[in-house]
């Protein structure tokens, strides 16, 4: 297989398979959760479940002071790499082109220098997060294979993207192919690992808030 054939396979059939697994996986897992249903609440409502739910989605986005003081590193590093991932994934011109190609909608991109800086910051933060997980006894005790695996499939697209942009190590078509392949790996494992939190996060937050809201409690 020549490098062009490899790139074409990665951009063609492999991307189709990865997309299929990703979409089917996400939809199935969300439906499984939603269709399980809850028993109707017979108690009289003391407040709005919907309002409570929506409020919680927003309120839980900001850490309370106590948590921030207790787990400063976890919180700050968590925010940094999530924002970094958002910037590198959704504000880099070639990525926006892909989104526009598939969904027909696009938006302006950020200069590559900013994307480059965001990538480096995110990479360093992810490495620090791993180091902290290994050093902190509690985190290490709580971590299993999946935690390390998920970390790996998250950092790989970032790392290969950085190498592809700067053309380090291999020929540009191969670097691009390896980068896209690493994203496809991420897409395939996404629905079946803790990465699924990206889709269940706000749903879960809303539910927590809705329970409290129904009882008239501010959460």
């Amino acid at each position: 297989m020549t490098e062009t054939e490899f790139l074409m396979w990665v951009r063609g059939p492999a991307f189709q398979v990865a997309t299929l697994v990703f979409v089917v996986g996400i939809v199935v897992r969300l439906l499984e959760i939603l269709l399980l249903g809850r028993k109707g609440n017979l108690a009289e409502a003391r407040g709005s479940a919907m309002a409570g739910g929506l409020r919680t989605i927003v309120s839980r986005t900001w850490p309370d002071r106590g948590t921030l003081q207790r787990s400063t590193f976890t919180l700050v590093s968590g925010y940094v790499f999530h924002v970094g991932l958002f910037v590198t994934i959704f504000l880099f011109a070639p990525h926006i082109l892909l989104i526009r190609d598939v969904f027909g909608v696009g938006w302006p991109s950020l200069p590559t220098a900013i994307i480059d800086a965001a990538t480096v910051v995110t990479l360093i933060t992810l490495l620090a997060v791993l180091a902290y997980r290994l050093v902190n006894p509690v985190q290490r005790f709580l971590s299993g294979f999946q935690d390390y695996f998920v970390w790996l499939v998250t950092i790989l697209p970032l790392l290969t993207g950085y190498l592809a942009f700067h053309r380090i190590g291999m020929s540009p078509p191969t670097l691009l192919a390896v980068h896209i392949l690493s994203v496809e790996l991420l897409m395939v494992v996404f629905p079946f690992t803790k990465l699924m939190h990206a889709f269940t996060l706000f749903m879960a937050r809303w539910y927590n808030g809705a329970i409290a809201g129904y009882r008239g409690v501010r959460s």
């Binding site: 951009r11 063609g12 969904f103």
Partner: peptide, 25 residues
């Protein structure tokens, strides 16, 4: 553009979502 997939990804998403709904239900 180099960064875009060559296949009909939008079609795959629609069929995938339909298959996902069926399997999910």
């Amino acid at each position: 553009p180099l960064s875009t997939p060559t296949g009909d990804v939008a079609g795959t998403i629609i069929y995938g979502a339909a298959a996902g709904v069926a399997a999910g239900v």
